[in-house]
């Protein structure tokens, strides 16, 4: 499974648990419009750390959190695992 599809499937699972209706997942979808609140995003980052073994947002010194889904996925793709 690609990093992207792992991220999407983790999002779908969390959406189900948190009873969030996810819109279609596309690259330019703003994270704010995913229906995920900050807590759900934190859970996502923690689950992905478990699954992928990386957390791109605490490694970086200038950790600006991405604003779209595409940027979020790229943050994971660009980290050397």
């Amino acid at each position: 499974m690609s990093v992207k599809s792992k991220i999407f499937s983790a999002m779908k699972q969390i959406a189900e648990e948190q009873k969030v209706a996810l819109p279609p997942l596309e690259d330019d979808l703003p994270l704010n419009d995913t229906g995920f609140d900050s807590l759900a995003l934190a859970i996502l980052v923690a689950r992905l750390e478990d699954e992928l073994g990386i957390d791109p947002f605490t490694v970086a010194e200038d950790a600006a959190f991405p604003s779209t889904l595409g940027e979020f996925v790229r943050a994971y793709e660009n980290v050397p695992a």
Binding site: E17, L39, A42, I43, V45, A46, R47, E49, D50
Partner: peptide, 8 residues
């Protein structure tokens, strides 16, 4: 805590 969050 972030993993506790993921575990619920």
């Amino acid at each position: 805590a972030r993993h506790m969050m993921a575990d619920g």
